[in-house]
Amino acid sequence: MSENSRALKLAEDNQKLANKRKKAKEKWGIVLDTSKCIDCKACTVACKMENYVPVGFYNYRIWVAEDTHYAKYPVISRSFQPSQCQQCENPPCVHVCPTHASYKTADGVVMVDSKKCILCKYCMTACPYDARYESHTTEAIDKCTFCYQRREEGKDPACVETCPPKVRVFGDLNDPNSEVSRLLAYNEYTVLKPEKGTKPKLKYIK
C-alpha cells in the first residue's frame, strides 16, 4: 500500500470513527506551557509520521513559531510557540463550508470529510490561525484531527506524546478531574486571538 492510499484510508477510517462516536461525552482540548518549548520539532515530525502528511513546506497540520522579543547583541530574548488547529468551539471554517465537508464531531473535534470537500478553500481563508492546507494525498483540505484515530485506544495524540518536555497536555475539558481541567483551574491562561470569538480549545498557560 502506498503512502497515499494509507493517507486516504486513515481519512476514511476517521470519518467512520466520528460516526461511531456520535454520543461521545468528552470535549477534547490541549493545555500548553510554552515556556518549556525548545523548538525541537519532534511534534511536527511525529504528526507527519502518524498522519501520513507528506514532505513539503506547505504540508503541515502543526507548527512551531518563533517570537523574537528583542534582538540587539548582546541582548537577545526569544521564545517558541507551538500550535495547531485550535479546535474552535465556534469554528469559522465550519460555518463557511458550502458542502458541510468541514464539521465538528460530538467530542468537539473539527474534521474534514475528504469525500465532500470540493477544494473551494473558503475554510482556509476563514481560519484565523492558518491551520489548514490543501492535501494532495486526499485531494481535500487537511488539518489537525487531534489524531482522531487514537481516540478509541485512549492514546495521546502523536504530538503530545512525543514532545520531550511535554509542552502539551491533552484531555477532556468536560471532566473536572482531568489533568487539563486541573491545569486550567490552577493557572492563568489565554487563547490565541481571543478577539476573533472562535473559542479555541487550545489553552496557553501564561
Binding site: 513546506f57 521564545s79 510557540q81 490561525y129 492558518d130 496557553y204
Partner: peptide, 15 residues
C-alpha cells in the same frame, strides 16, 4: 508572558 499574534502563514513561511 507573551503570545504570538499567529504563526507565519504559508506564503510568508516560504519567504
Amino acid at each position: 508572558m507573551f503570545l504570538l499574534k499567529t504563526k507565519l502563514n504559508r506564503r510568508k513561511f516560504l519567504a
